[in-house]
Design a protein around this nucleic acid. Structure first.
Lengths: 118, 118
DNA sequence: CGGCATCCATGGCGATACTG
DNA sequence: CAGTATCGCCATGGATGCCG
């Protein structure tokens, strides 16, 4: 009823892919340079960071500003659309933070009563 | 700052995997039997539906009720935790529905000004 | 009907090395 | 510093076939 079509799926895929959410949240606080963004994003490889940023940029969620200084300076930040995503996204993240205890417990219960050992 | 740890990533992975969101939203309306759920979930294969349901069940988001009738009846529905996820999830889906036009346009612009033709 | 097991193709993603 | 290009692994997920 909401997402029979492919567009919605595509965008949810983007939201759900391994790094997008992390990048968006990190950029939500402030615009950042490539290296700094990578540093804040845990163990993301340089390849994946580039790729993720390209996707987000293509979707109009992130802007890129390259300054042709000597060792080249590039900054990334959220566009207004990107910022508007921050709300739904953080409400989701909040939900996770609030419920991960229950979920962890549910998993233990499930595993326990399905194969006691093995 | 929010999701350095692995738990959050794991759960977001679940949210972001190809079918979970669709299943949860479909079950949000009402409890459904396996076949009916499959029918409403577009082109999901039986394997993936089973797998996704197991994951969601393990996380305590979905319950499963098997009635040993002759041709076996199984119903799935959301637990209270699962229902509490419905909120954040639909706010995300709403966002997508509201912005997919802009995103589609942004993509066209991006593609156009990056390689005018292949 | 509901579900598990197997096989197999695709592609996500990391590591590495090279360019501007 | 900020990328692009290449390679190779392995997880995701579809198709198919069998069981309760």
């Amino acid at each position: 009823m909401l997402e029979d079509c492919s567009i919605t799926r595509q965008i949810l895929d983007r939201v759900g892919d391994k790094w997008s959410v992390l990048i968006i949240v990190n950029l939500g606080a402030e615009a950042l340079r490539f290296k700094e963004l990578q540093r804040r994003s845990g163990g993301i490889s340089q390849r994946m960071l580039t790729q993720t940023l390209r996707h987000l940029e293509r979707d109009g969620l992130v802007w890129r500003k390259a300054t042709p200084t000597v060792p080249l300076t590039v900054e990334y930040g959220l566009t207004s659309i990107g910022e508007s995503l921050l709300g739904p996204l953080t409400s989701l993240v909040d939900w996770v933070n609030k419920n991960n205890g229950k979920i962890a417990k549910a998993r233990i219960d499930y595993d326990h009563q399905h194969d006691t050992q093995e």
